[in-house]
Amino acid sequence: MKTVKTKSEVTRAQIIQGALQALEKTGVIGTTTRKIAAEANVQLATLHYHFESKSALLVAVLEALIDEIAERLREDRGETEPNLDERIEILIRGTWRSIMQSQTRQIVQYELTLYALREGAQWLADQQYEAYLRLYRDQLASRSGKPELSLQSYTVLARFILAGIDGLILQELVKPNRSRSGRAIEALIHGSKQLAQKLLREA
């Protein structure tokens, strides 16, 4: 059953989308709440009613981006219960596919991280990183009720994959080469499976 959104929820989503469009066009530094309101086609007062600050809106943008990737990963996994090796493949391939379809958004996310660190908003950078870590960990976890790994071990594996993905994103953005990146993704999958086996032996 489809959930019906309230007018307030629709307006909030509209503002978040407007913020993302503005960020893609002018970057974090060049994006003002006035520009966001214009992109979202709402009054500035309406924007400030839903978001008390630019930082609050940036957090909402990050959450929307992560939710978008999470939804695609859920669709890739479906209702089946793949084994851990298969879940690793689904996570890495699905994440990379989403990234390649939205490279401009990846630049926005890196800008948001650097902006947060430069402006003394360490919490925003932390929140972004932890959200991705939770997403990866949840995608790796078993749904059967019998986890193969401890929460700590799932976190170790998620951190390894996240670090690999981040490095490959930067490499592809700076010097695009889909063939090279494809080979690197296969290597990351292989390395992640090896780490998973090591963690399983230690469990």
Rank of each mutant, 00 (worst) to 15 (best):
T3I: 10
R12G: 03
I16K: 03
G18L: 10
G18D: 05
Q21P: 04
G27I: 09
G30I: 07
R34Y: 12
I36K: 08
A37Y: 10
A45S: 14
A45H: 10
L47V: 08
H50I: 08
F51C: 07
S53L: 07
S55H: 13
S55E: 15
L57A: 12
A60V: 09
V61P: 06
E63M: 12
A64D: 09
I69Y: 03
D76L: 05
D76Q: 07
T80I: 03
E81W: 09
E81N: 09
L84V: 00
I88G: 02
I90Y: 06
G94A: 07
S98L: 01
I99L: 12
Q101I: 00
S102Q: 14
S102C: 06
V108D: 07
Y115V: 00
Q127T: 10
R134E: 11
L135P: 02
Y136L: 02
D138N: 15
L140N: 02
S142H: 11
K146V: 15
K146D: 08
K146R: 15
E148Y: 03
L149F: 02
V156H: 09
V156M: 08
L157M: 03
F160I: 03
A163P: 04
G164M: 05
G167S: 07
G167F: 10
L168I: 05
Q171P: 02
N177S: 14
S179T: 12
S179V: 10
S179G: 03
E186F: 09
A187T: 05
G191N: 13
S192K: 05
S192C: 00
A196V: 01
L200Y: 06
E202M: 12
E202A: 15
